[in-house]
Write a protein that binds this DNA or RNA. Structure first.
Lengths: 216, 216
DNA sequence: GTGTACATGTAATCCGTTACATGATTCC
DNA sequence: GGAATCATGTAACGGATTACATGTACAC
């Protein structure tokens, strides 16, 4: 029922765009991310984009669902920022390759040069559960943090491989620098985990007597 | 039109819950966060919760919109995990205070003790733009990173005050530890920013000749 | 009396995920 | 021939944000 209104709204936006010939005020950042990946002048399929993002950008920005990548590509194609490449016939494994257009390159560049400073967003479930440590059993809390440390070490290993790979390529110096930044952050996380564990040792069961329900 | 289906779906879930008497399989983490704030045995309004979260939890987990807090409180009240406090008449500045119930406390505790390890999520727009550094003007990129560093220093100052405040209270040792963890992460971010700037100095305009459009 | 902070909420919308559907290719 | 991987999509759902609507209390 409000589908109709919604559809009309979308239609209006479409008309606006055609009439005034400009982009929608701002695309979501993930659209620019896809454009950014394509800005390396390679022809990529949705699948490629997903894989590349998983190996690199995800460590500091983006771990998209595959379906999301395809939807984003559709939107970008509709806006003329990206175009499908015609590789002789529908042969090569059914892959549909995309290439960035001039307008697309212009759009990412403009975004990267002029977008306002965005704040870092950190979502750290383990720290949240530490914050609520009074609700947990100290031993279980320790175990959680240790498990987290293991996972972080594993991730660090992956990132370092990714850094090595990027650093070895001439055209990948900026990506390598970004991955180095991410590496530093995960190392700090590891150190902070160790520090928290040490602090938990000092007072294995900190007093907090006024709780209504006894713990354990 | 699919509103109907959606509504039926919700009804089914409701019926399930009433029939089997258990919570919906898993509440979203933010619901547990609200419960967690209330688990400190204080009576809080939606506004209070928003403010407290902004001063503490937001640094590592959550910066909710106000309206989101109210919706979450409604849901929790509907589930009986939280209850409105009757403070004599609708006087005191129209505030509606909430208190955690026994079921609510049980639910957060269970969640904090048994939830599976969640991965840290980092969304760092500045690093993304560094990754795409080839699209930017080197001077502008430097400026962006410096601006980010300023903002991070400001945030660090806020966190440190928050840590001091928490550390001074007996019942806030875990929150203090969590904030210390966050502090370490933001300090590392600052250091990484400085490192990136230093690296940009070394090669102010790294070669990347095969670009289709000249920059600048 | 006017503006600012306090305080609570609803409606519409958006982004992203999950679940689902489908089919080609490769490896064993 | 059967499983795993590659590959592309659609539909439905859910969480969170933005914009909006409303009203009180207090400071100047």
């Amino acid at each position: 029922m409000d589908m109709t209104i919604r559809y009309i709204h979308q239609l209006c936006q479409e008309v606006d765009r055609l009439a005034f010939g400009d982009m929608p005020d701002e695309l979501p950042a993930t659209a620019y991310t896809v454009l950014g990946l394509l800005s390396f002048d390679r022809e990529l399929s949705g699948y490629d984009i997903k894989k590349w993002a998983d190996a690199s950008i995800r460590y500091f920005w983006w771990a998209p669902a595959v379906s999301n990548v395809y939807r984003e590509l559709q939107r970008l194609e509709g806006l003329g920022l990206v175009e499908a490449v015609d590789h002789g016939g529908p042969s090569a494994r059914n892959r549909k390759l995309f290439r960035i257009t001039g307008a697309g390159r212009q759009a990412v560049e403009r975004w990267n040069r002029t977008a306002p400073l965005g704040a870092l967003v950190l979502k750290h479930p383990v720290v949240l559960r530490l914050w609520l440590g009074d609700l947990a059993d100290p031993a279980e809390l320790r175990a959680l943090i240790e498990e987290h440390a293991v996972a972080t070490r594993r991730m660090l290993k992956e990132i370092r491989e990714s850094v090595d790979h990027a650093a070895s390529q001439e055209a990948m110096q900026y990506p390598a620098a970004a991955l180095a930044w991410a590496t530093a952050l995960y190392e700090a996380d590891l150190a902070a985990a160790a520090a928290a564990l040490a602090q938990l040792d000092v007072k294995p069961s900190p007093p907090r007597p006024k709780r209504s329900r006894p713990r354990r």
